[in-house]
Design a protein around this nucleic acid. Sequence first.
DNA 1: TCTCATCCTATTGTCCGACAAATAAACCGC
DNA 2: GCGGTTTATTTGTCGGACAATAGGATGAGA
Lengths: 295, 295
Amino acid sequence: MRSANDEARPPENFVDASSPSTPVRSNLHQRIARDLGERIAAGDPVPGKVLPTEAELCARLAVSRSALREGFRLLAGKGLIASKRKVGTVVRPRTEWNMFDPDVLAWHLAAAPTDGFVTDLFEVRRIIEPWAAALAAQRAEAPTIARIAVAYEDMVRFQGRAEDLLEADLRFHETILEATGNAFLISFGALIESGLRASFKLSWSGSAHTPEYSLRRHRRVWETIRERKAQEAFALMSELLRSAIEDVHDALLSRRLAADEERGVFTDSVKDKGPSGQRQRESRERARQQPASKR
Amino acid sequence: MRSANDEARPPENFVDASSPSTPVRSNLHQRIARDLGERIAAGDPVPGKVLPTEAELCARLAVSRSALREGFRLLAGKGLIASKRKVGTVVRPRTEWNMFDPDVLAWHLAAAPTDGFVTDLFEVRRIIEPWAAALAAQRAEAPTIARIAVAYEDMVRFQGRAEDLLEADLRFHETILEATGNAFLISFGALIESGLRASFKLSWSGSAHTPEYSLRRHRRVWETIRERKAQEAFALMSELLRSAIEDVHDALLSRRLAADEERGVFTDSVKDKGPSGQRQRESRERARQQPASKR
DNA sequence: TCTCATCCTATTGTCCGACAAATAAACCGC
DNA sequence: GCGGTTTATTTGTCGGACAATAGGATGAGA
């Protein structure tokens, strides 16, 4: 029984290798978790509803119950699902999900990168990272400051290659978080990494602002940290993130415009969007749950 | 084989029921994860080292391999461990752990509530919650504000019963986070809940400040949110947390003093601690990894 | 003696089947 | 119509088997 393949099953043909914090050759239960996680993040089984029974999912995904259940545990540990005897495995309400988990963030961005969602993410970054910069200016040890410098210099050197530039950019921000010596802020770095990687893959490789503009801001942040000017580091990091979020919103906007145009629709829902950077606050309630992509 | 019990094994005799975000009647794999998680958080297998093999752990804990592996997945999903064929299951470096996971936080606090750790936690609270209060003042809808009021009034009513007071206190802070509408900030509430619950169980039920003092601060935060005064809400929440961290530090200090005294040691390591609230910044590096309790 | 290829073995990864336990839902007696 | 009982379904745990991988031992050759 269970001959070959039924539907929606990636048994062997996809080596893929696209997930943060999981190695290229991921295990089966990791792939299962990612698969289900992305689907749940997209709202396939809407919160409150139950997933198919383990037996059925085993058949559909063509995996053993052990592997499936281990995948379930990965999701349960992040708050996405909860299983109970006789009732099944239910998708927990979104408020219970651990949004600070890098995987959960990646699944969200892979499945439904809504405006409201990335707005929320950058809002948190704008809350945390300026403080991190200030604390780094106060506490960073010399070698850590040197690593921030290296990251910045790599950004300059890799200006051409977007891939390497992203890596250097990530290292820049993560090293600043490290410099604070705060275990929680260091953890926050993984979230930024996951978020930026996914956003990057989402195709906003470039930016609306010129590369020089962004580089100059990074350089000034680094300099103020080196010179132990906490308040200025705070302000500059705040500025840096403000311009970064504008870039992301522009990218998401053009992305949606392109999608709409190609679909032939051009209704009133997209005609009066301003040039970004301002109306996020007002329209955030409505933009929240509006999927911008497939599925 | 595997007759009765070997060591450090809680097979059936502990019903316990002490873990946040997990129901009272927890499953076996959840208990396994908590058990190993607390031990790892305490540094039993130090990061980089490998755990005993699955076969051995199965024997020691007297559980099946399935249950053990599901527990492993819980831990792996939070970044604590990583398994590889032939090499075993290694404890990942602390920087890779997801400190924003409520369980990870609880395990840390249960196993090794160091000064540096709670300082870090409250530092993050002081970064995030004032902003949350400000955003809540801007965005909260009327019914949400009403729930904040209810939480405050419950705090007043439950002044006597510490348990209920804690619940109301948690609801107060979590509702403010909810009011921001930011998915990430809402997630942060689970962290606060886990942290405060563990701290509470750690015995600082009361506080150095009078209850009235704390209540007055909460009241003023609520009022400014109701009156949409974002800046004042920011400042007041900041103040509230500043006094809260003083309470916690006092509690931890007296806790350690009591432990030292009872042990008979009274060396120079504890004699010149000031009256809290000031020297956290300077001595944080040294206080970081100093266990204050058993094990 | 050093280097490299090969084999061996230990360990996790996955599969399978069985039974236990819980509990929602159907059922039945009153 | 209602409360207690039974049933059926679903997850929870167990035990065993084999596959896959990779570290380490082994041995041959330079």
